[in-house]
């Protein structure tokens, strides 16, 4: 091979390029480990220093279910990414915003309209909301999210504020699985 005749720096460069591209392709199609920030997914993900494990085979919304946690491009700014939970699949009828309205002095406002304002999620879209309904910019503001913007499904998280080994919980750096929260209703309560 001619490669053997090349100077050492060009050989190193060639290896570096190939390894970086391989890493990039894995990031694109298979798996990504990435930082998340912000209060919108509390208490599932903390506001700082949480890192999430993302599976990329769920790209474009393929195989995703109601209640899954996702990473997507922000519809209003493709330089930013968002972490949300799917709270409506195509064809579903969901309330636009059933969350509690609190005014600036802390009073809870009662508005019956919010339990009668529905939207039908359009084909090829999902409805997404942050787990922290009080501080989340989501479908309630920018409407349904086109599945084409979905980059993957969040399956687990680590928090680097936590100790490397937590003996009481037997986990490393606060490792936890991020589960689907759409479950059978508990008929005993209320």
């Amino acid at each position: 091979m001619a490669v053997g005749a090349l100077p050492i720096w060009s050989k190193t460069f060639s290896y570096a390029i190939r390894s970086l591209c391989l890493l990039h392709i894995i990031h694109m199609y298979v798996y990504e480990f990435t930082e998340t920030r912000g209060e919108s997914m509390l208490p599932t993900l903390s506001a700082t220093n949480d890192y999430v494990h993302v599976l990329k085979n769920f790209q474009n919304g393929k195989g995703l279910k109601m209640g899954d946690c996702i990473v997507a491009l922000k519809p209003t700014d493709s330089n930013h990414r968002i972490c949300k939970r799917i709270t409506g699949m195509p064809g579903d009828l969901v309330l636009v915003d059933p969350s509690t309205i609190v005014n600036h002095i802390g009073d809870v406002l009662v508005d019956k309209e919010r339990f009668s304002t529905y939207i039908k999620v359009p084909e090829g879209h999902v409805w997404v909301t942050g787990d922290n309904l009080s501080h989340s910019l989501d479908s309630r503001t920018y409407n349904a999210l086109p599945m084409g913007l979905i980059m993957g499904k969040i399956v687990a998280a680590n928090n680097f504020d936590k100790p490397f080994w937590d003996s009481s919980r037997h986990n490393i750096w606060g490792f936890k699985w991020i589960k689907n929260t759409f479950v059978d209703a508990n008929t005993e309560s209320d």
């Binding site: 474009n60 919304g61 393929k62 359009p122 090829g124 879209h125 086109p146 084409g148």
Partner: peptide
């Protein structure tokens, strides 16, 4: 070219 909003495939 862009992904169809109504069908990401």
């Amino acid at each position: 070219l862009f992904k169809a909003p109504t069908n990401p495939g």
